[in-house]
Design a protein around this nucleic acid. Structure first.
Length: 421
RNA sequence: GCGGUUGUGGUGUAACGGUAGCAUGCAAGACUGUGACUCUUGCAGACCGGGUUCAACUCCCGGCAUCCGCCCCA
């Protein structure tokens, strides 16, 4: 390929057909969020570096697309929608009636190595609910995820939602390890599914967890299965924090479709800012990375300078979702074809043809020849763009004030007078 | 940041250390008002740089890109 200008790494071009599909997916997601009473918002792609790095450390900073510095301003592209939406919430927090239920479908950027289902520029539906600490709010978020998936024809046979509660997990772990080790232990637990049991034990030993305690940790993360398995946790005799987390989890699960949900104490999401329930949606075959993820983040608003406000939310990325839908043959059906194609027979009738086209445009999408091609070629073109009907504008018919309208698929033709179009 | 894969017309592919072929696409034409079938003609290609060789698309090295994975995943 001898191309002078290449598309940047990890970004996508959407040609007409692909864009139609991407749009349909986005519209589908929007529709589901609206059905649950959420309202769409939008905001600039660019934020200050200060805001973007407020909730996270240096590693995150490395993945931000930072813009060239202009004057004193340090700016970068957003890497998620939770941050800017929370900023929007904080600045109007006082006047807004709670709960505030917002969503956005928009692109974002992360500077990282692209791979299947992961790009540098990608789009997510992000749904955020501020002001409610009730399990119904968490359950609503999970139910929106399910509604989104079902709106494409996916079922509980195709996908599952793994759910955990950060208070529960941390509460149980704090019985075993000190607070300063907690972060490391959670990190190791998060990748436990990917590594062998021996490696898992070695890693824990390395940070100074005794064998006896490792056995208990193993028991904890093996708690995986349908919501009924929460009974097993009670047997571990959880106290205070863990008990609170367990109750949050149980109460949330009361309001969600059990066919979709599996409890899995090993998912930790590595997300520092989650405070309660956390969940991730996966395809059942385990072929792809997470389709969606979310949870409760009760401290973020305060961290961003607002009044302490409970909040919960999730995001669904379109990249992985599109891969799964393609795989299952469930991509939304779309059409980019015009209703009519107007074909002037020769140059003399072009003015009349243009006139007819604009008249038809009051009700239909109408394409017209821009190449002054002969009629046969115009037919080929009309056919290839998928026009449903072709309007042949020629002198013979015009003499009687008529045009010939032909249905492309059937070849059925009729002469219609111009004023009746 | 690390590892692997692959780089031939717009797209999909073939062969070969010695003339790059096929399909599709695009354009024009085959009864000067009728397409989705057919035919003709045309357009259009070796990622970049270096090395080996009489000769490199082919072999070697480097870069770039690609896809896949690891790290990470807010």
């Amino acid at each position: 390929m001898n191309m002078q200008y290449q598309r940047i790494k990890g970004a996508e071009d959407f040609y007409p057909v692909e864009l139609a599909v991407e749009k349909a997916i986005g519209d589908n997601l929007r529709e589901q969020a609206r059905k649950f009473g959420f309202q769409e918002v939008n905001m600039p792609a660019i934020e200050t570096i200060k805001l973007l790095t407020a909730k996270s450390g240096e590693q995150v900073k490395e993945q931000i697309f930072v813009l060239e510095k202009k004057g004193a301003e340090e700016l970068g592209l957003r890497f998620d929608l939770t941050v800017p939406i929370t900023r929007m919430f904080v600045s109007k927090q006082k006047e807004l009636q709670k709960p505030v239920k917002w969503f956005a479908v928009a692109p974002m950027w992360r500077y990282e190595a692209p791979q299947a289902g992961r790009l540098r520029e990608f789009t997510q539906l992000s749904v955020e609910c501020f002001g409610s600490d009730k399990p119904e709010a968490d359950a609503t978020c999970i139910n929106i995820i399910i509604a989104c998936m079902e709106s494409f024809g996916l079922t509980s046979k195709d996908i599952k939602i793994k759910i955990n509660n950060k208070k529960l997990l941390e509460g149980l772990l704090l019985e075993l390890v000190s607070k300063d080790k907690l972060e490391d232990v959670v990190r190791i637990i998060d990748k436990s599914a990917k590594i062998s049991e021996i490696e898992f034990m070695q890693e824990l030993k390395k940070i100074g967890v005794s064998e006896q305690k490792i056995e208990v940790i193993k028991k904890i993360i093996k708690i995986q299965g349908p919501p009924s398995c929460l009974a097993n946790i009670r047997e571990l005799n959880p106290k205070e924090l863990a008990l609170q987390g367990l109750e949050e989890l149980e109460n949330t699960l009361k309001f969600v479709n059990k066919e979709y949900v599996v409890v899995d104490l090993s998912i930790a999401r590595g997300l520092a800012y989650y405070t309660g329930n956390v969940y991730e949606c996966f395809d059942r075959e385990g072929k792809y990375r997470a389709l969606a993820g979310g949870g409760r983040y009760d401290q973020l608003v305060e961290l961003f300078g607002g009044e302490a406000t409970p909040a919960t939310g999730f995001a669904i990325g379109t990249a992985t979702l599109t891969l799964l839908l393609k795989d299952k043959g469930l991509l939304p059906k779309t059409s980019i074809s015009p209703d009519y194609y107007v074909a002037p027979v020769d140059e003399k009738v072009i003015p009349k043809a243009m006139e007819i086209a604009s008249k038809l445009r009051q009700k239909f999408s109408v394409d017209i020849d821009l190449m002054r091609r002969k009629l046969a070629k115009q037919f080929e073109y009309a056919n290839s763009v998928g026009a449903k009907k072709i309007v042949i504008v020629g002198e013979k018919d015009l003499a009687e004030g008529k045009v010939t309208v032909r249905e492309l698929a059937t070849g059925k033709e009729e002469k219609i007078s111009v004023d009746k179009l």
